[in-house]
Amino acid sequence: MFKNKRGLLPEEIIFLLLNLVFFVVMLLFIINSTNGKAVYEQAYAKQIALLIDEAKPDTTILLDMQNALKLYGNKDRREMVKIIGSGVKVTLGVSGGRVYNFFSSANVKAEFMQIGEENGKPVYSKYLTIDVTK
């Protein structure tokens, strides 16, 4: 189809390469976008905010974050869930994270507990510990 007497025409090679590049870029975009990071960011931010709203002062909540941790990888876990003012910010790697406010005025602390050490590096629990205090 693309051959003349000399074989493939350079324009046709460029055409094939451009198509290939286009579809590879699109495929990578889809794979990267459908891993659920954005959805999990939103779901966890809202879930944590609701848990804080519902908790009476002097309550400790443990939240299983295994699904989020799989997407987050080995980055610093202290950056994954942050309490900023009266909002919960969850960052799994999509454009700076998502924030959802809670209406509780109690003091809130959310962190992953260190449960040990491996090769000099801290090992953290898969549970997020949320402390709601007066």
């Binding site: 975009f29 889809i30 959805v39 809202k46 519902e54 999509v94 209406f103």
Partner: peptide, 24 residues
């Protein structure tokens, strides 16, 4: 088309407004 579909999927809102009002 692909970008719009992906943004629509990722931007879909999990609506918890009523739940939040109930908790209040």
């Amino acid at each position: 088309g692909i970008v719009v579909a992906v943004i629509a999927f990722n931007g879909a809102d999990v609506n918890i407004k009523e739940l939040e009002a109930d908790i209040l």
